[in-house]
């Protein structure tokens, strides 16, 4: 008997038996779930959602700005880079939403994150109003390392992709058919309190996170 079989047999011998156990597991995995309470924060109306998302992202030490359309992104990004005394260049993936834009004076290099990346740019397919989080999907369009290696991480999310709670976000994710290796929820820039138990921003991940919310 393998370790696996011994472990499973030990569990089975200690747990109730019955055919209904299989059925209960199958039903649960098929999405049948007892009524589960959710936080007030996860029940924003569409009208208040963007504002709630931004407020919570800011509470988590991100910064955010609203732009009218994707076409406004290059100018908005150039402004942010200037304001932060960063050079006019970012690292990004092959996301078609970015590829289609005229970047003007901003140099956009494509590829994975390198050991030093002053500024990176990713598109988040989802936002989560409940917590002010972004959720990124790994892949060539938005390489996962850009999310973690950028000193300043710029993120773009469409207002229409901001979901009220986890339930809506996961439903949208399943419906999208996406199957990334990682689904990365990001709530503010990285931080640590491990030195002297005092919270500091900028641990191994970005020191700053700026979110462009694109209205439509």
């Amino acid at each position: 008997m393998s370790a696996r079989d011994r472990i499973l047999a030990r569990l089975a011998s200690r747990l109730a038996t019955g055919a209904d156990r299989e059925a209960a597991v199958s039903a649960r995995l098929a999405g049948e779930r007892p009524d589960t309470p959710r936080p007030m924060q996860s029940r924003t109306t569409p009208e208040e959602r963007v504002e709630a998302f931004i407020a919570r992202a800011v509470k988590a030490d991100a910064t955010a700005s609203l732009i009218g359309s994707m076409a406004d992104l290059p100018a908005a990004l150039a402004d942010e880079l200037r304001r932060r005394n960063l050079g006019p260049s970012v690292r990004a993936g092959s996301d078609p939403a970015l590829a289609a834009l005229d970047w003007g004076g901003v140099e956009v290099s494509r590829g994975v994150g390198r050991i030093e990346e002053p500024a990176t740019l990713s598109v988040a397919p989802y936002g989560l109003a409940e917590t002010g989080s972004l959720a990124f999907c790994s892949g060539p369009e938005n390489p996962v390392t850009l999310t973690f290696l950028g000193e300043t991480h710029f993120a773009v999310v469409r207002a229409g992709d901001i979901h009220a709670g986890f339930e809506e976000l996961f439903a949208a994710h399943r419906a999208s058919g996406r199957d990334p290796r990682t689904l990365n929820f990001v709530t503010g820039p990285s931080r640590s309190a491990d030195i002297g138990q005092t919270l500091q921003l900028g641990a191994h991940g970005p020191v700053a996170l700026h979110i462009f919310v694109v209205g439509e």
Binding site: Q41, A60, R181, F185, V186, T187, P189
Partner: peptide, 12 residues
């Protein structure tokens, strides 16, 4: 925190 900074779901 309402949510930790990074929550990552990884598969394969």
């Amino acid at each position: 925190q309402d949510m930790s900074v990074y929550t990552t779901l990884s598969s394969g």
